[in-house]
Design a protein around this nucleic acid. Structure first.
Length: 672
RNA sequence: GGUCCGAUAGCUCAGUCGGUAGAGCAAAUGGCUUUUAACCAUUGGGUCCCAGGUUCGAGUCCUGGUCGGAUCACCA
């Protein structure tokens, strides 16, 4: 693949490679010059005259905290935080605008100075006008104080030569967003903020481009997602409208959850769950990391072993989805990006891994929406000798503990709801359908009305629907079920003649119940299973707000799960729904190789009939099962969606650092 | 793919009825220097997404397009 520039604007370099021309953009095309970049370039040149190398290779930080001192680490460091608290107490006793008594401040400053000099580094969060400026490590902010004539410049000559005469000149060549390292002692200002009195200043790196707006950060969703680095910079520079408590303030600022890994890292940022205030981008991804690491720890504490199975697979199976295709040149074979690790993990159960997990990416070549990204992270794990009920218990505990570790409690605010992860309700699909769908014009009447207006709706009064519907035999059957004298019936047409029903009708409970029983009594079970699941999806799924395990799935749509011992049409399978989204899917794993073979064959015939997402037969998996797999239960948990719920984000793109987007046509486009 | 909405300074946005292109932040210059979104003064900065049309005159109205967002469809 070559990068081809689509918008030639000035002279370019051209390279000829493999019969193709590659046009390379100039630096100025990538970083378009304007008054701001030119000012920064000018400053950079002047700095080079003063310090030599403008991009030194390292800055050695102090180790007051035990490791290299980061800004947020230093603020959290007990000695510093205690003094901050002490100062906050003193200030609490003062009147508005009154300054703390000099002797109190001097005593505190003496203690801070006794800690010794600190050497810290970070990015300037504001333009360096005046003596005070904050540095950030991306999470916290620490103020530094550079007083003319009181600090020296460290030259980047490899010998750390000090230059006192040019320090102030150099300071004025430093811009908003540049990186500097400072060496100095800690003190508190009159306003009570712990700061570094700089004695030595070293320039570390230039920001050639201007920083995002300090009040708003980056708001254009395209830049936020495409240039996440700018979004993250913006979130670390951003000044929150409600000023946070002062450094080292009360527990309101440094929420304590009992372990050092609490998400609240910086006293300059509000606590993660503060009164519904939105998390910064950085905090979202800190929390994401937190959730993932707590899940890993929980699993490992319970004896699970982490494995990595192929991402490039000769068969795309283990789930119902369209795969990405690629080609391996040396082997000259087609490969698919995996849609699920499921069958590989169960091979490992066959091989003797009784508890095994994989936490990694899956790829599905499907639409992009607020809850779908082409690649997404799934935690999948299997436990030998466990059935679906044991798995639900375990999953419930895993969620409860991970959510608590990541957020400090079991209840999270999501939109206008509170979601409680302390308990997960269990409800059969049948109950779910009966409990929610016959509220005709109830809470979801409006939703249905919207669908009716917004789509191609054909009512039963319109005879033309019959022809359209005729292409799917099962629909005709369904129409017969639902048909009832005088009951209006609406059919929503979907693409490729895949149908779902939206029913806005009356007195159907009895009939649905009958049909359900018919389904359950049907020895083949193939006729209605998928339609019932579709009913559930269309009518119930979006109504489930609190964590709920929907259990008792039709077997026909569950080709890898064991049937229930009580009812051969029902699979021992569950899905976890929260806020209308499927978050997890688990079941008792089918381990009878012959039955698994037959289920695959059924799937293949569905495929023949045009269902592109029906599962593909995996011969080697049948062979693996034939060596014997213990009874086992497994589950896949959609990490991105869970993170959405725990960070109050309404789009999966907000919890993925670099979500997929169209290529940036302004810069370059892919061409073969 | 359908529908709706949007695109104006580096960032966040305003721009009335069609009549010389605006603010805050950021930048430059000077002042101030224990500030808390620092402040004061001055200055520079625009392909108003692109193309076409209507008009004496278009950021504004019309048509087409590009890009983005929301929503619906798709995603068992």
């Amino acid at each position: 693949m070559l990068r081809i520039i689509s918008t030639p604007r000035s002279e370019r370099f051209s390279l000829r490679t493999e019969r193709k021309y590659m046009s390379i953009p100039t630096f100025e095309e990538i970083i378009e010059p304007n008054d701001q970049t030119e000012a920064r370039a000018e400053h950079l040149n002047k700095l080079r005259e003063l310090i030599g190398n403008a991009y030194p290779n390292k800055f050695v930080r102090s180790k007051l905290t035990g490791a290299d001192d980061t800004i947020s680490g230093l603020l959290k460091h007990s000695a510093v935080a205690e003094i901050g608290d002490e100062m906050a107490e003193v200030r609490a006793g003062l009147k508005e605008g009154e300054r703390p008594p000099a002797e109190v401040k001097d005593a505190i400053n003496a203690k801070l100075k006794a800690l010794g000099n600190v050497r810290i580094a970070g990015r300037l969060t504001t333009p360096p006008r005046g003596n005070f400026v904050h540095l950030t490590d991306g999470i916290g902010k620490l103020q530094i104080y550079c007083k003319k004539g009181q600090f020296a410049l460290i030259k980047n000559d490899g010998k750390d030569t000090l230059d006192e005469g040019n320090a102030w000149t150099a300071w004025q060549m430093i811009d908003h967003g540049d990186f500097v390292g400072v060496d100095g002692y800690l003190f508190v200002t009159n306003t009570g903020e712990v700061s570094v009195h700089v004695e030595k200043l070293q320039f570390l790196a230039k920001a050639m481009l201007p920083m995002p707006d300090k009040m708003h950060g980056i708001e254009d969703p395209e830049i936020k997602q495409r240039q996440r680095y700018v979004d993250l910079i913006g979130s670390s520079l951003q000044v929150k409208a409600e000023p946070p408590a002062l450094a080292g303030g009360t527990n309101a600022a440094g929420k304590v959850s009992g372990d050092d890994e609490s998400v609240s890292i910086s006293t300059s940022l509000p606590p993660a769950d503060a009164g519904g205030s939105a998390l910064t981008t950085r905090e979202v991804f800190e929390r994401r990391a937190k959730i993932i690491s707590s899940m890993r720890r929980f699993l490992e504490d319970h004896g699970y072993v982490e494995v990595e199975t192929p991402m490039l697979t000769p068969k795309a199976t283990g789930a119902a989805a369209k795969p990405f295709e690629t080609h391996h040149n040396a082997l000259d074979i087609k490969l698919y990006a995996r849609i699920a690790p499921e069958l590989y993990l169960k091979r490992l159960v066959v091989g003797g891994f009784e508890k095994v997990y994989e936490l990694n990416r899956n790829f599905r070549n499907e639409g992009i929406s607020y809850k779908h990204n082409p690649e997404f992270t799934m935690l999948e794990f299997y436990c030998a000798y466990m059935d679906v009920n044991g798995m639900m218990d375990f999953c419930e505990e895993l969620l409860r503990q991970s959510v608590e570790k990541a957020t400090g409690g079991s209840v999270v605010n999501y939109e206008r709801n509170k979601i409680d992860f302390a308990h997960v309700r269990r409800l059969s699909m049948k109950q779910a359908v009966f409990e929610t769908r016959f509220t005709r014009y109830g809470p979801y009447g409006g939703h249905l009305e919207g669908i009716l207006q917004g789509n191609n709706i054909i009512s039963s009064q319109d005879s033309s629907w019959i022809e359209d519907a005729g292409t799917v035999g099962s629909l005709v059957k369904m129409m017969e079920w639902w048909k009832q004298d005088g009951a209006p019936l609406y059919v929503r047409l979907k693409a490729d003649h895949n149908f779902a029903l939206d029913l806005v009708t009356r007195d159907l409970e009895v009939e649905v119940l009958q049909k359900w029983e018919e389904f359950e009594g049907d020895s083949i079970g193939r006729e209605y299973g998928s339609e019932i699941a579709m009913l559930f999806e269309e009518l119930v799924e979006h109504t489930i707000m609190q964590p709920t395990f929907i259990i008792d799935f039709p077997k026909v749509i569950s080709p890898l799960s064991k049937a229930s011992p009580e009812n051969p049409q029902i699979a021992e399978r569950f899905e976890l729904f929260i806020n209308g989204m499927e978050v997890a899917n688990g079941f008792s794993e089918l381990n009878d190789p012959k039955e698994q073979y037959e289920r695959f064959v059924d799937q293949m015939s569905e495929r023949e009939r045009g269902d592109e997402e029906a599962m593909v037969l995996d011969e080697d998996y049948i062979r693996a099962l034939s060596y014997g797999m213990p009874p086992a239960a497994g589950i896949g948990i959609g990490i991105d969606r869970l993170v959405m719920l725990l960070t109050n984000k309404h789009s999966i793109r907000d919890v993925i650092l670099f979500p997929h987007m169209r290529p940036e046509t302004k810069l370059s486009a892919e061409k073969d």
